[in-house]
Simulated assay, not measured.
Amino acid sequence: MDAARAVFAEQGPDAPLEAIAERAGVGTRTLYRHFPHKEALVRTALRQTVTERLPPILYRIPDFDPRSAILVVMEAVLAIVERERSVLAAAANPAALTAEIIEPALGPLAELTVRAQAAGTIRGDVTGDDVARVLGLLTNVLWVVPEGDDGWRRYLVLVFDAFGPGAATPLPPP
């Protein structure tokens, strides 16, 4: 997986699997036996990252107030997508894979939204689905800021402020 990430970062999304096999120190046939096509390799690399990086964040969230926890989870997911930008670019459908990255955070975000509303720190007309969809929208910002640039954090803060309870325009029905 590390070899795939490095080759995609260096050569771009069209990097051949042969280059990845060479970097990994395995034969091309061995790579193809485990990953019959690039999409399988990309999915496995993303699944590995999400499995390694997201659970520690999700286990920590009970220590935060719910509003802060929502921001921590959103930031963690966006950081994962940023880290895996080169790998995602190699996918046939990056948007679908990004949705897979977000999926493990959906339940916790929905629970946190309810808790934050109960605490009065999130506007009452926002749903957990709204938070998840906004997170999905924010992943698109990553494609328009330079790679390795934390500029996406600016947009996270701007959009996150819209969840605040003060002086909010009522939302249309979900």
Rank of each mutant, 00 (worst) to 15 (best):
Y32L: 14
D161H: 14
I102N: 00
F8R: 11
L88H: 05
F8C: 08
P62E: 01
R47G: 06
R29D: 10
M74K: 12
G128L: 01
E39K: 02
V26A: 02
P36M: 01
D161Y: 09
F8W: 14
E75D: 15
P55T: 03
D130A: 00
E100K: 07
A118W: 03
L54Q: 05
R47M: 05
D150Y: 04
H34S: 15
G12P: 07
R154D: 15
P172A: 07
A6I: 09
S68E: 14
E18G: 12
V77C: 02
P94Q: 07
E52M: 05
V77W: 08
L109A: 04
G27T: 07
W152D: 01
R5T: 13
P94E: 08
P170N: 10
R153T: 11
R85T: 09
N140W: 02
A105M: 03
P104N: 02
E84M: 15
V77M: 07
G128T: 00
V50C: 00
A90H: 11
P13H: 14
P165F: 06
L46H: 03
I102P: 04
V134C: 10
R29T: 13
P146H: 05
R43P: 07
P56F: 08
D130Y: 04
A15I: 11
A119D: 09
R53G: 04
